[in-house]
Amino acid sequence: MVKTTRKWWPLFVLPTLLAFTIGFIIPFAEGLYLSLCKFTTINKATFIGFDNYVKAFSDAQFLNSLKFSVSFTVVSTLLINLLSFVIALALTRGIRGTNLFRGVYFLPNLIGGIVLGYIWNILINCVLSLTGQPLLALNADAGYWGIIILMCWQQIGYMMIIYIAGLQSIPNELIEAAQIDGATSLQTLFKVKIPNVMPSITICLFLTLTNSFKLFDQNLALTGGDPNHATEMLALNIYNTFYARSGAQWKGIGQAKAVLFCIMVVAISMIQLRATRSKEVQQ
């Protein structure tokens, strides 16, 4: 069977592979090379070695946004996973209205980051002006917590769905056996439920970590990095380095930052997957 199928690769694999080459492989390889160049367009690039990387690390703005991104990612990942797990537990008890609740909590995921950012921009500015505080454009703290609230509002529903699926796949006998053995509901939670939903926790942590760290749309639409780049996250910083600064050297520095960013995201994903995979139990 494999033999007859093998000859058919131009039809089965080639279209996707061609598009993948145009959309991913070529830009990725070019990006790697250009991070070592000084350029304004791809055809006018001169090789300058690791100069861009040195400059990227000496850019205070870049380091600031790295700090902002890391702190935002840690706080939002913890909050989102904790809250969505608690809601998932509440929604697997079989209380009335479960489907409605689930449906409503998931809704924000269908609305795009730009629109969400704009809606929350109006809402938060209204709260700030009613309480007599400076608006988002001048208020870095409000911007930080605003993005966290917005991300919780959007992502809790998504993670909740995954946790619910995980909780429902635990065999009932396991929970019943624990109860017969006299386990309290807290013990059942920590000794039976959580170890058995470890695969869901792995995937949710992975999704929230990478989503938060790579966040762009919501950041752009809610605060746009204001005031004075104080709420600028890595992705937005790279974007601004490319398109908002004049001067021949900035595109190269932006590309070097993007490569660093990419390495960070890949490293975080690998470490996280390895760390939580080892805690999963086999059913």
């Binding site: 790579k214 992705a235 993007a258 490569v259 960013f261 990419c262 994903s269």
Partner: peptide, 12 residues
Amino acid sequence: SMVVPFQMLMFT
């Protein structure tokens, strides 16, 4: 390719 952030490729 699922892990790589879009900023890595956007200019090219």
